[in-house]
Design a binder for these strands. Structure first.
Length: 362
DNA sequence: TCTCCAAATATACT
DNA sequence: TCAAGTATATTTGGAGA
């Protein structure tokens, strides 16, 4: 069954929202940062606008480095909760343009897939009109731009949207997918990151064309069955995955840096306490209970380590979270000698909490 | 030896 | 040098059948 899928990607979302909220930012480089709580510019870049990108600023780059590249850029702290609100409005617009309420899939705060197979009757010219209409609606209602990709499946739509940015639209018809993908570096394939890119490079594969031509069995021998087969299919533009509403996330976590690298228990446990407050807050808000607790420590040498504990029953008590997270954290302190840099706490195996499950249920 | 699943690590993305 | 945060996917490894 032929499908027509649209992928919408908001342009430099966080920075775009900040620009919208403060018109004096217009024309300036805007860098939205995730600050650690250690001094002036400790932290990493979340998003930046295109003026900043032109200066070489990238996501995940240390803010300090960004600042050295563009001293006159405006650096702002992330306001995630606010962006979530804007996201919700945008998503509503997008959803209203899908074939049906269900033919919609939000994949992150600023991206979504919509199936429009029926709305456009498999006509790609009509599909493009729908894409343009979406861009127009988002721009007029939210004063923000987005880039749109249209293709026969999610993979192609996703890659099409990143082909022309910002404020672009790219239509890839089924018969065009091969030529569209061929020349791309494998890194551009949705799902291939730095690690896979490097592994492929070792095998002499750098373009999608090379990957598509590569022997599946050999890919499987290196990447395992699942990923090996996926790589082969993706490189040839195949993707059968349906557009459908994502189930709510299965985990809720928080992580933050200590003021200094340290093994000071007061410092560690008071930060852990704050993080647990946030986590339990989100748990309550979503009215879920959890069945596992994970504590993460990132040491001063950047090695990451986790410990987790799973229960027989789902719970939602702060006390149980505290008890377990503290216990796991104590184990870390006992086992290690290196200073801690960041710590995190996460609850998982979430489920709808039916009633007010408490200790009585055991 | 198989299967389940908890634990831990790897990876991706912004 | 500098180096955040959130979430999912994959691998590992132990226990019971």
């Amino acid at each position: 069954m032929e499908r027509v899928i649209i992928h919408v990607d908001m342009d430099y979302f966080y920075a775009a929202i900040e620009e919208r909220e403060d018109p004096t930012l217009k024309g300036k480089a805007v860098v939205v940062c995730m600050y650690s709580n250690r001094g002036e510019s400790g932290g990493a870049v979340s998003t930046s606008n295109y003026i900043a990108r032109d200066a070489g600023i990238r996501s995940a780059m240390p803010c300090k480095l960004a600042k050295s590249k563009k001293p006159d850029a405006v650096f702002l702290p992330v306001r995630k909760a606010f962006y979530e609100e804007v996201s919700a409005s945008v998503m509503e617009i997008l959803r209203s343009n899908a074939d049906s309420e269900e033919a919609f899939e939000k994949i992150s705060i600023d991206e979504a897939f919509l199936e429009i197979t029926e709305s456009c009757n498999c006509d790609y010219d009509l599909a493009k009109e729908i894409g343009l209409r979406i861009k127009e609606e988002v721009k007029s209602q939210e004063r923000i731009t987005c880039s749109v990709g249209i293709g026969p499946n999610k993979l192609i739509a996703k890659m099409a949207s990143s082909f022309r940015k910002p404020d672009g639209i790219t239509v890839i018809r089924p018969e065009e997918t091969e030529d569209f993908l061929k020349p791309m570096p494998v890194k551009k394939l949705w799902g291939i990151g730095k690690v896979t890119e490097d592994k492929l490079a070792e095998m002499g594969i750098t373009t999608v064309e090379e990957l598509a031509a590569f022997d599946v069995m050999e890919l499987i021998s290196v990447f395992g069955k699942n990923k090996g087969m996926w790589l082969k299919g993706a490189a040839s533009g195949q993707d059968d995955s349906p557009v459908k509403e994502r189930t709510a996330s299965d985990q809720i976590g928080r992580m933050a840096s200590l003021k200094n690298d340290s093994r000071n228990e007061n410092m560690i446990f008071s930060l852990l306490d704050e993080l647990m407050d946030d986590v339990i807050g989100k748990v309550k808000k979503r009215k879920v209970s959890f069945r596992s607790v994970t504590v993460t420590v990132i040491f001063s040498n950047f090695k990451t380590s986790t410990k987790s504990k799973t229960f027989n029953h789902a719970v939602s008590d702060r006390e149980i979270l505290t008890e377990n997270a503290v216990e796991l954290m104590k184990q870390f302190l006992e086992e290690s000698t290196i200073n801690f840099r960041r710590i995190g706490v996460r609850v998982g195996n979430l489920q709808e909490s039916t009633g007010q499950k408490s200790l009585f249920d055991f």
